[in-house]
Design a protein around this nucleic acid. Structure first.
Lengths: 189, 189
DNA sequence: GTCTATATTATGATAGAC
DNA sequence: GTCTATCATAATATAGAC
């Protein structure tokens, strides 16, 4: 067994469980069961559950960053890139309907009584905001307008996912994604 | 002390705590401390924590229903009523920035691993959706279009609140409220 | 680095006096 | 109806053998 392998297993299992069950409701016992790593081992890799969450957030940040970079390389125009962003909502529709947005739902949970972790959980959202704003600047918007519009795009996506999740309504999600894509791409037309 | 008074105290304290700290993270001990009612008494009024939550949801539903009825009586036009709805976002800005939306954040938490309570928690949202749709029908929209637009209005409000809460950004909330109000009122112009 | 105990504490829930 | 114990359980976290 390669070194650090059990650490990765723990992080992967925790990432999934934190998403599907929530941070607070996920116990080390469950992560141990899913990952196959006994929970006694957890504290060798992470001094606390909060530190495990930070590792999960870091992994998610890495994945998001890689995806955004890939889209910038693959797609030539800001318009196509923005459309690709919105299409995440339909590509991942099943999970979004079942569990909500992994970034947004975690932010909501941690925003209640956990200021430090809440701030950390914002980082994945920042990646999206900055990336969208960059596309809008490339399309001629001012920095200020670009950031405000990017935040609006994130807000609309979050709201659509939350509402579609609340009603278990896949059509709603699809409809909203279409409207957001139209609005965003017309902005850079 | 009037009959049922301690029950009301418990519900009021639970309602506030569930909002500010989340359902799972709020213990009976905390509700007991806030309400002044010993937790041993809780089980006389509610057979379980889940039942207490249902009482909280019922109280919230009553309040929302009363507010919506009042707006319909006070305000003559669908346009003015819709504007009033959106203005909740700025009226309650402080709490929304600090804790998020009481309806949306609870829905997000319960959506993770609690299908029954999740369904119950949808009821307050339904009140808003139906009320908004009714205003749009009164303004000439078809029932189907009205419902879809009402859901979009809810989605936009939820997204704006979630994002403003995530960033602690009151300006963002105000900006989005303005944009949503403009969009909604132009729909019925 | 990994695993098997186990400590400690907090929780939701009960029993039963008043 | 109200309150004071108290139970049973499950959680995070630790100790220490290997």
């Amino acid at each position: 067994m390669p070194r650090e392998d059990s650490r990765q297993k723990i992080v992967a299992a925790a990432r999934r469980a934190f998403y599907e069950r929530g941070y607070d409701d996920t116990s080390f016992a469950q992560i141990a069961r899913i990952s196959g790593v006994p929970k006694g081992n957890f504290y060798y890799h992470f001094p606390s559950k909060a530190e495990l969450l930070q590792a999960v957030l870091e992994a998610r940040r890495d994945d998001i960053g890689a995806a955004l970079t890939a889209w910038e390389e693959e797609l030539p125009s800001p318009k196509a890139r923005l459309a690709r962003f919105v299409r995440m909502m339909t590509n991942e529709a099943d999970a979004l309907i079942r569990y909500g947005c992994p970034v947004g739902s975690l932010l909501t949970e941690l925003g209640k009584a956990n200021a430090e972790l809440h701030a950390e959980a914002r980082a994945p959202l920042d990646l999206y905001v900055d990336w969208i704003a960059r596309q809008l600047v490339a399309a001629g918007k001012t920095r200020k307008a670009a950031r405000e519009l990017a935040l609006r795009a994130i807000a609309r996506a979050q709201g659509a996912i939350l509402t579609a999740h609340a009603y278990g309504d896949a059509d709603l999600l699809k409809r909203e994604a279409k409207d957001i894509e139209r609005w965003l791409t017309e902005l850079v037309a």
